[in-house]
């Protein structure tokens, strides 16, 4: 039996794909569990969230 400390991210499959892409840039995923869940390094959570935010913002369009 093995024990690992981390942060469980629950997300939709689309976000999950972005996470995998970000992981290629800088590895932070400890375990890829299934379509909706990944476990990542606890200390990188804030960074992952901000990166994800930037990626998602690229997909929204503004009239102004």
């Amino acid at each position: 039996m093995k024990l690992e400390k981390g942060v469980l991210l629950t997300c939709d499959p689309a976000v999950k794909q972005i996470l995998l892409m970000l992981n290629n840039r800088q590895p932070f995923i400890l375990q890829d569990l299934d379509e909706f869940h990944v476990v990542i390094k606890a200390e990188l959570e804030a960074w992952v969230r901000s990166q994800l935010e930037t990626e998602l913002e690229k997909n929204t369009y503004n009239l102004e």
Binding site: L3, G6, T10
Partner: peptide, 12 residues
């Protein structure tokens, strides 16, 4: 869109 919970993963 992302919910996070810190904790422990048991495997193997």
């Amino acid at each position: 869109r992302v919910k996070s919970d810190s904790g422990y993963l048991y495997q193997d």
